[in-house]
Amino acid sequence: MDYEMQSRRLAEIAAKLLEDETVEAVLGLRNNPEAGWPTPYCARTPQDAERLVWNEACYTNLAFYLTEMRGKTAIVAKPCDVRSIINLISENQLDRDNFIIIGIECEGKRKDGKPAPGCDACPSSIPGFWDIAIGADGSDTWCDLPMAQTGENVTQWAKKSTVEERFDRFLKEINQCILCYACRQACQGCYCVSCFMDRKATPWEQIDADTGSKIAFHLTRAMHLAGRCTDCGACEKVCSSGVNLKYIYKGLSEFVEETYGFKAGVNPEATPVMNRYEADDPQVAFLGGDCIVGI
């Protein structure tokens, strides 16, 4: 990885796009010494473009910000950002004509000296699609770096573990949660105007901060993200309490891929997996079914 070359080329490209008025804004990251890591930044003038950086701590998923932008935008996107963008396009949340993707090669980011959440399972260093490419060496060709892919296989873990072990792991994470909803806010898939957690219309929906409510929140969120999670790790990256629940989302992604052959963030034309059905879907969950679902 040549971050310096990548940063330089990124700044050049961004400055050019802004100068030509091809786009109104370039969404990227800038250095932020007070925060301690690069934070989201929206460059609007060619001079601003110089502040855009690219280094090993640029782990923020910018797809969320893209949904908020007005006017034509260019987004600096690594593979996980592009997966998220594809997911949003397939759900009609983004108009492909309204933005330009500056795809940037990434071999995994680091947070607090460790691989950032999600990066250890990333399948490829090249974004799914792009308009302008910035390769690992700063050129306009991809280097296709080998990926470590050391992330845990949740299904395998679940098959080996007991119910108690799984419950303990889940409760251990849940107990640290303070229900601040940062994970929901940072998630590309959580774009509902009115989240189920914010609706307090009926008594049964009431949310306190007890264990039951935390379970209800995290499980329902996981359910809503089934087949939609792009494994970008944004939920764990923003969590200020250190709740690591990505394994649940990942486990569901693995299940959906294995059972229905669907992977989120691959095909922008695809109908989301939970929005369709096949008449011969397996009866795995049902009484008398072969119950492979039950692990």
Binding site: C180, Y181, A182, R184
Partner: peptide, 12 residues
Amino acid sequence: EGCIGCGTCTFI
């Protein structure tokens, strides 16, 4: 501009 409305700032 960068706010995602997570409320972390108020909680800590």
